[in-house]
């Protein structure tokens, strides 16, 4: 089976990696690039743990062929904090910060995917309703929290962003 050098844009960097054609983006991120923040929970698109952003949209890395991500911007959980720092922020991305502050991270395994779904939602819609939050996260299974502190965390991130917005400090 064919292999090739895949040139991916991941978290702002252009990286070259050799991978067989059938390798998924998740396999390349985790096992070729060492970006193990994206998790594998089912490998069949049922759990959402491998959610990454491709051009800002949440997609499942386990069902994305790595070569088909060529030419697109891939953002993994490892990319959020550096992007926030580059944009002049301090500390982690407000979504990460809020998840930590609200206790939303129990085992933490589903949360990289969850936080990226939340990040994509807030980039698209800065002040979503509770129902919209639940809808946007309904493809990410969490087994620990009962979702309550996750939804609180997203609402906390929204509040943090809107509070900072007037002085120009929004993310």
């Amino acid at each position: 089976m064919a292999s090739s050098i895949v040139e991916l844009k991941v978290n702002g960097d252009t990286v070259e990696v050799a991978a067989p054609d059938h390798f998924t983006l998740l396999e390349v991120l985790r096992y070729r690039l060492g970006l193990t923040g994206s998790k594998q929970g089912c490998d069949k698109g049922d759990c959402g743990a491998c959610t990454v952003l491709v051009d800002g949209e949440p997609v499942l890395a386990c069902l994305t062929l790595a070569r088909l991500a060529v030419g697109h911007e891939v953002t993994t959980i490892e990319g959020l904090m550096p992007a926030h720092l580059r944009a002049g922020g301090t500390g982690a991305d407000p979504v990460q910060e809020a998840f930590d502050r609200c206790g939303a991270l129990q085992c933490g395994f589903c949360q990289p995917g969850m936080m990226l779904s939340a990040r994509a939602l807030l980039d698209r819609e800065p002040n979503p309703s509770r129902a919209a939050i639940k809808g946007a996260l309904s493809g990410n299974l969490c087994r620990c929290t009962g979702y309550t502190q996750i939804i609180e965390a997203v609402e906390t991130a929204i509040a943090a962003s809107t509070e900072r917005a007037p002085d120009g400090g929004s993310r």
Partner: peptide
Amino acid sequence: RRNRKIDGLSKATGAAVYADDIA
């Protein structure tokens, strides 16, 4: 108090190492 978890931010940023992250 609602103290943050000792490993909260490392999990939030993808730095935390789980068994399958070991190579």
